[in-house]
Structures are given as C-alpha cells and as structure tokens.
Amino acid sequence: MTIRRIFSGPARLAAIAPLVWLTLFFLLPFGFVLKISLSHTVIAQPPYAPLIPLTGGFEALRAALAQLDLGNFASLAADELYVMSYVRSLVVASASTALLVAIGYPIAYGMARLPPARQPLAMMLVIVPFWTSFLIRIYAWINVLQHDGLLNRVLLALHVVDKPVVWLSTDTAMYLGIVYSYAPFMVLPLYATLARMDVSLLEAAADLGCSRLKAFWLVTLPLSLRGVAAGALLCFIPIVGEFVIPDLLAGSERLMIGQTLWLEFFTNKDWPVASSIAVVLLAVLLLPLLVFQRLERRSVEGGTR
C-alpha cells in the first residue's frame, strides 16, 4: 500500500505536461469557437469582429460581453438549410450505426468463435484497413463505383443490369463508404466483449435445454450490449460530423452538417456562422460524448482482462 503511494507521486507529476498541452490545444480552442460564434461577420482578415479584449481588465470585458451577439444562433435556427443539415446528419449517423451493428456483430461473433490461436490473425486483418488511409479507402471506392468502374462492368457482364447504374453521388454510395470506413470501430469493441465472455455460461444454457439460438438471445446478446454501446458511440459521434465521405460519395443537393460547416468556413469565409454551427453540434453531441467517456474509462481503466 505505502509503496503504491510512493509510486503515485512521480506518476502524478507525469500528468502535468499532457494536462497543460490538452488544456492549451483542446479545451482553450473550444473557448475561441464559442467566442467567435458570438461575433459579427466582417469582410476583413480575420473575417470576424469583435474580439473580447484580454488586456482591458474587467470593465472592458463587461463592455465586450454586452456587445455579444446571439444573432448567429438565431439565423441558424431560422434557416432551413442549417436545420435540415443537422437533421440529415443525425438520420445518416443513426442509420449507418444500425447498419454497422447489423454487419459488425456477425463479423465480431465469427472472430470470437475462431480457435484461440487464429484470433490474433483475424484481429490483425480487421485492424489493418483501419491503419490504411481513410481518404485512400474512399478513393478506392470511387474507383469501384464510378460510371465505367468495376461494379458496373461486373453487373453488365452478368446481365444483372442492361445499362450502367449511377452509383457515385448517391446516398447508397455514401452509406457504403461510411459502413466500410467505420467497420473496424464497430468490430473491435464488440470482439473484445465477445472474446472475454465466459463460454461456460453457454454450456450451462445448453445443459438447461436452451437451443443455440435461444442461448444466443438470452445469454450472449445481453452480455455483449456494452460492447454494442461502445462500438455504436465510437461510430455515431464522428459520423454526425463526417465531412470527407459525404463530400466525395454523396450528391451535393443535401448536405451533412460537417459539409455545411466546411462550406461556411472555406467557401463563404463566414467564421462566426461556422463557429455557431460547431457550438450547436457540440451541444447535440454532448450527451453521447459523456456516455462514451464513461464506457471508455471503464473499459481502459478496469484492467480486468
């Protein structure tokens, strides 16, 4: 006990550098997002005003606070474009997450039931695409899905269709890309849960007369729900703000909120509106984020492997 306490002293010192770094470069920046979301748009460099003066003391700060403008948020709520973007993002993220659970669960289950000696290889095979560039994997799909791409040629050769199908710039392509890119994020936490499960529970169920299907429904599924939740949040949260996949694979008539933010920032150069979009997005994602952190902290710090 005392030895552990001695050890924890220096270990706590180790926290200083990462804590300072994350405060400076993760927490503080979101303060700036909040601040600029309350500013006016001006055509200048940088394209916003006013700044909260950091040097003017309390009075100047109060004067600045009085000037803050909630107009950006009002225009977000009033403009159908933004509202529809948020709705589309949430719909796409929910549907993709459901698809990912449906596809990821059988894969993870299959992996967990492999002979133990083969499991590391299977895990490696699932992880490798995760290490391969995200952008390159989406580009790989453009290769396959384009007008004269492999998919259309295979379908034509098999006489499934008689003229090339439009795959690119559709929601189908976008969902395909999302499921493809996020599959490892769903499979790995699920696999970790399923592999850790005590198989003797299934034997007990079988002894008590359960069919395999019923044993799965009554034993395996409830025990793996935490893995499902971890995988689902690991996919859902970033998909809501996804930019690259819808930008390259979906059509441009309906945008997800990540694309709208990108557009406001890079094309319209409207930093205050882009910041307001980010603030609202953070508010939308706050609850899933908190739940995810709880799950993650428990799984990493639990150490019960």
Binding site: L28, P29, V33, I36, L233, L234, L261, L285, F292, Q293
Partner: peptide, 18 residues
Amino acid sequence: YAPLVMPEVMTGLALLLL
C-alpha cells in the same frame, strides 16, 4: 477520450481559431 470521437471539422476549426 473526447478527441478520439470528436468530429474532425470541430477540432480543426477550434485549433485554427486559436
């Protein structure tokens, strides 16, 4: 844990503004 799932457009925008 937050940056693991935080949408990249938000992290990017926040850092740029800083």
